Amino acid sequence: MSELAVGVVGAGWMATDYHIPAFTSHPDTRVVAVAERDADRRAAVEREQAIPGYDDAAAMLSAHELDVVSICTPPSTHEEIFLTAVEAGCHVLCEKPLALTADSARRMADAAAAAGVVTQVGYLHRYYRNYDRALELLSNDLLGEVVEVTVAHHSAPPSAGWYYDPDLSGGGVARDLFPHTLDVLLEVFDAPPEVTDARVRSLRDRPVEDAASVSLDFDGVPVECSATWTQTEGVSRVLVVGTEGWLELDAETLQGDVHGRPFEFRHGERSLVDVGVATLFPASDEDAHTARIHDFADHAARGDTDTAAPAARGVAVAEIIDAVYDRCGVDWRAAR
């Protein structure tokens, strides 16, 4: 099988640190072009990657027969680029959030389904090995019936100015950080939740919220989620309590108790040795960003549309976030 030709749209840090290296290292894909409006960033990628650059995605698609388009641009641009790529018959990996609104996300998902192309939204948390282990425990009902879930996701304030511009971002921290959490929750529960309460706050007088909390009801199971742009060193912790045990995890550590038996993983691995005074775990080479992009590339190479988080998942996530803003009486869409 010949390699799939990839065009990357956007040449910011997400593209240069993750997308371009990951597609380059995958055996079935090669990056052949980049589209970037900023001339300096475009020239830097052209020079460093020895590939041609274009002002926009349409020009790139006109110049190359691409198999894959990878979107690493602000959310306000996602729908137009996505639809242009799908119309050209390309598979699409799109960074989260998929779109600024659920209506926009539905148009994108419908177009992709009609074209039969492979899509994936770039959610990250499910690709940490601890999250994979936790999902395995939950899917096998080892915790019994889930009683409640609490999620706290706190990150450093973004450096890119577009995050704070509602015309470009579609909202603040809720639109930025909740998608990772919601993707995992939608994997755990069979039906979408009801938003029973929500709150957004501005801590530093920004144009969009930098603190948000939401109460969800997944068919009787209460879930509390909070997110802020406050921490220099980010933290994202999940606590799940069941009738037969509990688990708590972040990207590094997964621990808990099942039927009275405690367990602990580091980066998805059990300890090598427990000598009483110290527990030793194997060294980790975990790279969740590369894992998610390689997973998409594997599906694209097979033409398998059943990815971990296709555009339809992006629709479900967007519907919940729209409901959060509606509950708070905030409509960033009005700014557009």
Results as ranks from 00 to 15, higher is better:
residue 189 F to H: 02
residue 85 A to I: 09
residue 118 V to N: 11
residue 130 N to M: 01
residue 84 T to N: 15
residue 58 A to F: 04
residue 165 D to A: 09
residue 175 R to W: 06
residue 195 V to I: 04
residue 125 H to A: 06
residue 74 P to G: 06
residue 179 P to F: 08
residue 117 V to H: 05
residue 102 A to C: 09
residue 139 S to I: 00
residue 188 V to M: 00
residue 91 H to T: 08
residue 194 E to N: 12
residue 117 V to T: 10
residue 197 D to Y: 07
residue 173 V to E: 05
residue 193 P to E: 02
residue 94 C to L: 14
residue 98 L to Y: 13
residue 97 P to Y: 07
residue 59 A to F: 00
residue 75 P to L: 11
residue 198 A to V: 10
residue 103 D to Q: 13
residue 80 E to D: 15
residue 82 F to N: 13
residue 124 L to Y: 09
residue 167 D to F: 07
residue 71 I to H: 14
residue 173 V to I: 11
residue 181 T to Q: 05
residue 196 T to A: 04
residue 129 R to A: 15
residue 185 L to F: 00
residue 106 R to E: 05
residue 89 G to M: 10
residue 179 P to A: 06
residue 142 L to P: 00
residue 158 P to N: 07
residue 177 L to A: 05
residue 115 A to N: 11
residue 112 A to T: 07
residue 68 V to P: 11
residue 118 V to G: 04
residue 103 D to F: 06
residue 190 D to N: 04
residue 64 H to W: 01
residue 153 H to F: 10
residue 143 L to E: 02
residue 143 L to I: 01
residue 148 E to T: 04
residue 188 V to T: 02
residue 77 T to R: 10
residue 135 L to S: 02
residue 196 T to L: 03
residue 86 V to E: 12
residue 79 E to G: 09
residue 134 A to D: 01
residue 145 E to R: 08
residue 185 L to N: 01
residue 92 V to R: 09
residue 130 N to L: 03
residue 59 A to C: 03
residue 68 V to T: 11
residue 143 L to W: 01
residue 196 T to I: 03
residue 144 G to A: 02
residue 172 G to R: 06
residue 164 Y to Q: 10
residue 99 A to F: 06
residue 115 A to D: 11
residue 168 L to A: 13
residue 95 E to I: 05
residue 118 V to W: 08
residue 166 P to M: 04
residue 155 S to Q: 12
residue 156 A to K: 09
residue 193 P to G: 04
residue 170 G to V: 09
residue 156 A to G: 07
residue 83 L to T: 12
residue 64 H to P: 08
residue 168 L to V: 11
residue 95 E to S: 13
residue 74 P to K: 10
residue 132 D to K: 00
residue 80 E to I: 09
residue 123 Y to Q: 08
residue 107 R to V: 12
residue 177 L to E: 13
residue 189 F to C: 02
residue 196 T to S: 05
residue 69 V to C: 15
residue 113 A to F: 06
residue 95 E to R: 05
residue 108 M to I: 13
residue 168 L to T: 06
residue 78 H to D: 12
residue 89 G to C: 14
residue 78 H to N: 12
residue 148 E to F: 05
residue 182 L to M: 15
residue 120 Q to V: 10
residue 84 T to G: 14
residue 196 T to F: 05
residue 159 S to I: 07
residue 140 N to I: 02
residue 70 S to H: 15
residue 115 A to Q: 14
residue 188 V to R: 01
residue 183 D to L: 02
residue 99 A to R: 14
residue 187 E to T: 05
residue 140 N to C: 06
residue 67 D to R: 03
residue 76 S to G: 11
residue 77 T to N: 15
residue 68 V to N: 12
residue 124 L to I: 09
residue 113 A to I: 03
residue 178 F to V: 04
residue 80 E to Y: 14
residue 183 D to K: 00
residue 186 L to N: 15
residue 146 V to I: 14
residue 182 L to E: 13
residue 136 E to S: 09
residue 131 Y to S: 00
residue 60 M to E: 06
residue 150 T to R: 07
residue 195 V to E: 02
residue 141 D to F: 01
residue 71 I to L: 15
residue 169 S to E: 08
residue 139 S to G: 10
residue 197 D to T: 01
residue 91 H to P: 15
residue 108 M to A: 08
residue 127 Y to R: 03
residue 172 G to Q: 03
residue 178 F to N: 02
